[in-house]
Design a protein around this nucleic acid. Sequence first.
DNA 1: AATGCTCCAGCTGAGC
DNA 2: GCTCAGCTGGAGCATT
Lengths: 198, 198, 198, 198
Amino acid sequence: MAKPNSTLPKGNASATTELLNLITRIERLEKEKKELLDDLNDVKLEAKGKGFSVKAILRIVKERAEDAGQRAARQEVEELTEVYRAALGMLDGTPLGEAARKRLAEPPHPAGDDDDEPLPVASEPVSAESIDDARQAGREAHASGAGILSNPYVAGDPRRAAWDEGWCLAAGSDGMDIPKAWRRTEKKKSPDAPEGEG
Amino acid sequence: MAKPNSTLPKGNASATTELLNLITRIERLEKEKKELLDDLNDVKLEAKGKGFSVKAILRIVKERAEDAGQRAARQEVEELTEVYRAALGMLDGTPLGEAARKRLAEPPHPAGDDDDEPLPVASEPVSAESIDDARQAGREAHASGAGILSNPYVAGDPRRAAWDEGWCLAAGSDGMDIPKAWRRTEKKKSPDAPEGEG
Amino acid sequence: MAKPNSTLPKGNASATTELLNLITRIERLEKEKKELLDDLNDVKLEAKGKGFSVKAILRIVKERAEDAGQRAARQEVEELTEVYRAALGMLDGTPLGEAARKRLAEPPHPAGDDDDEPLPVASEPVSAESIDDARQAGREAHASGAGILSNPYVAGDPRRAAWDEGWCLAAGSDGMDIPKAWRRTEKKKSPDAPEGEG
Amino acid sequence: MAKPNSTLPKGNASATTELLNLITRIERLEKEKKELLDDLNDVKLEAKGKGFSVKAILRIVKERAEDAGQRAARQEVEELTEVYRAALGMLDGTPLGEAARKRLAEPPHPAGDDDDEPLPVASEPVSAESIDDARQAGREAHASGAGILSNPYVAGDPRRAAWDEGWCLAAGSDGMDIPKAWRRTEKKKSPDAPEGEG
DNA sequence: AATGCTCCAGCTGAGC
DNA sequence: GCTCAGCTGGAGCATT
């Protein structure tokens, strides 16, 4: 029963070697994790240095990663926040977004007594081509120097979003540099570039 | 057990009594804190039970508490998120919000080569009375059964938001109960299939 | 701004008033919570100013609050940490604590081949009076200027802990001021007193 | 969906491509991070499955990773916790650890009026060989079936810790399996037959 | 004094 | 149904 008392007697896995093995593996993984986090931080710093808002980028990343259920849940919260804000008079000049509007319109007319609605929305379905056309029109509008306010589509028209996308895409592809409107406001640093972006 | 304070040689504040004093005060405060958190949780549960989205409510609370700087910072992140989303083609049918639009329009025409913009926005300042009128109109629209989509004001018009507020306020004041569109979707207790709208 | 509740049609609880009610209650509780946290922070700062280690105090508070199960779980983790440390040769001069030792001794002699153990521990039960005597002896030892190393009881003897308690209690009750050995080492501030205590 | 990068007008790094580039890199790193965390979790589950306490292992890993300053800070907190516990009469049978004792002894005799101290500690420096001998003795003690309580060295003697290390190392190297005293207590899954229900 | 960082408690979703 | 790991948000801390 007495074991040879030199340190680890067998290649076999004693409890001590098991333990050391586990610890070593964890340490190895932790080290890799740390390197990864450093890399991640580098990318964030680079984004920050270029003038992007890291918070906004991370939000985008998160949105792109979420599945349908998560997306629905998040959007529901956002919509309800808008609705509650509206009911409390906190909109402060920002009208309801399209999604919140749609949510409120879902039961279209809870009491359909009245029918004199102006109804300026494009309720007829818009074809995919029209949407692509709108996106292209947005691009061209930006190219020709038109502002984002020139979006000709009324609220509720799906082409409105597409036109926005086209305009913003063109704005982002415009020059070498990041548009001023895309930049986060520097918190304290002087507005010159902290470090040169390649 | 030991009675640590039974043999203190001096009525004066020795280190031990100091220590015990501090610990006791902390424990007292921790106890109060726990009770408060319980109360808070009760309110949240009550809100949840009534069908409200607790997350949305907490977001509202947070917004109401923030000062100007915090508010500006938060809004900037939200606007930039929208802008980035637009540039990546992720708007998914939701046009830019008013704030993001304004941010992009700020430097009105970065390259003012062209001037044939339709400019459908109401750029002339709208009087406060008109805004109140719009809010009232929203209320009345709801009262007469009109849907939220009936908002007659075009995107960019400040009265659009006011009309929304009026409509939502009326919708919330409508009956005894919380409107269906205000309710969060139950996570698991949903009797029927939650999704299913095409 | 908007006065959302100025036009509520019914005194009855509409959804909007419900919402506002909930929000107000949450805000009230949050405010109280903030005040409480401020108070708590004040106590911590006071403790820190007096030279106590706030982290150690908080750990004490946590221990005092835990129930039997939590206590057992925590102690088990601590004991196992010591055991693992010992097996890895990381004890660094600190022998196993009594609890870990007891845990390892529980199955008293897994292989009872040998019986020539020195067994220097006081395995006969020690009476409660002896323990109180030991505590008193510790107090007196401190009073007479003896150091903590003078504890005459051997490891494993329950009176050893009692003597320590007595000595430490006396040390803490000794003067007006907190003993040097009780003080946390200042992190960066110059060693002069940051602000007067008392 | 939209193919935002299909229409980039320039191969050059426009703002949009910059943005997409950054996002893609972040997503890549996040994916790797997730895989790493999964691997880490696997190791933890394996440790748990073998009966180790994952919490204790993680504590060991943390200790092994800390530098001198962190180590000193952590130990100070632990020592002060013991001191405070002692002063409050909370030692509950566990005497002060060696480190706390040393801290209290540092100013050896604050009032050296008395000199009749038993002083049973080995205050003369112990040679490194003696320590190794003690470790070896611990190993042999375990091999011969002696319990951990057989440690012949008195508290304060550095060989006491070494003997413990030797004993624990031998205990861990003893058999194929993890000693019972090393195992965490299962929280709910009683390993034996769940008899006696109903 | 303000800000970014780090740590920890509180909360959420999963899993037995 | 209850616990448990993961995560988000907040609080404290160090820094500039």
